[in-house]
């Protein structure tokens, strides 16, 4: 479960998040929409403990991130917009390292390969150096890293940005599978279609505020688009 209480975050005196209350329950996929600078990535950073709350609190699986920074990271996996990996190592070697960091022990090679295949990477590709990978392939390694962690919460920062439709669709499928296992998922995106298709709840952020939330089943694509555009127009 991911939760914030009256969360305020400031960067060098500028407010990035203001009195933010958000809650993502197990099995939920919460899609956060918003323009650049709305505070979506800052929120992810707050869940990862990379930014300190000015006021309020951040909880991952019930643990206060400020008080239990390492324990809270144990329960959350993260996939950034650009999964940057060690280019001189292969996909499986990268996964070996990140999975070991996540679990505190090294996983067997067969298990690592199975995770990469599950994420959609071929065995041949898994043994190649990352320097030969496309963005989509690196993203799949990122998914495998998250799968290896087996975390109860998943934080995704625009994970489908730059992916082709087929890869994005596969990715959505993986998210739904994870949610069905009870994982709480928070994902930021600019893609309204992806949010409507994948999310169970959708929130729109602007200037550090959470403006509105929708149930993705109850809201139509047109209504979502209209609401998003209206909020963006107000901002302009």
């Amino acid at each position: 479960m991911l939760e914030t209480h009256d969360l305020c975050v400031e960067y060098d005196g500028a407010v990035a998040l203001q009195s933010l209350n958000i809650r993502v329950d197990p099995g939920e996929i919460y899609c956060l929409l918003g323009a650049n600078g709305a505070g979506k990535t800052t929120l992810i950073n707050a869940f990862l403990g990379f930014v300190e709350p000015a006021t309020g609190s951040v909880h991952v699986n019930g643990l206060d991130v400020s008080r239990y920074p390492l324990e809270s990271k144990q329960g959350a996996a993260y996939i950034p917009e650009q999964v940057m990996l060690y280019s001189v190592l292969s996909g499986i070697e990268n996964l070996d390292y990140f999975a070991a960091l996540a679990t505190g022990r090294r996983l067997p090679k067969a298990r690592l390969m199975a995770l990469l295949v599950q994420a959609g990477l071929s065995e041949e590709a898994a043994s190649r150096r990352i320097s030969t990978y496309s963005k989509g392939m690196r993203q799949k390694v990122g998914i495998a890293i998250a799968l290896a962690k087996g975390a109860k919460a998943l934080l995704l920062d625009e994970p489908t940005s730059g992916l082709d439709p087929s890869a994005a669709n596969e990715f959505s499928l993986l998210l739904r599978q994870a949610a069905s296992r009870g994982v709480a998922i928070l994902t930021t995106t600019h893609d309204l279609f992806h949010a409507k298709q994948t999310g169970t709840r959708i929130g729109i952020m602007r200037k550090g505020h959470l403006l509105v939330e929708f149930d993705s089943v109850a809201v139509s694509h047109e209504e979502l688009e209209a609401a998003y555009l209206e909020h963006m127009r107000v901002m302009q």
Partner: peptide, 13 residues
């Protein structure tokens, strides 16, 4: 090179 966030998203100081 952008690896630090991914590395430190794990329980390592």
């Amino acid at each position: 090179q952008g690896m630090m966030k991914l590395v430190l998203s794990n329980p390592i100081t």
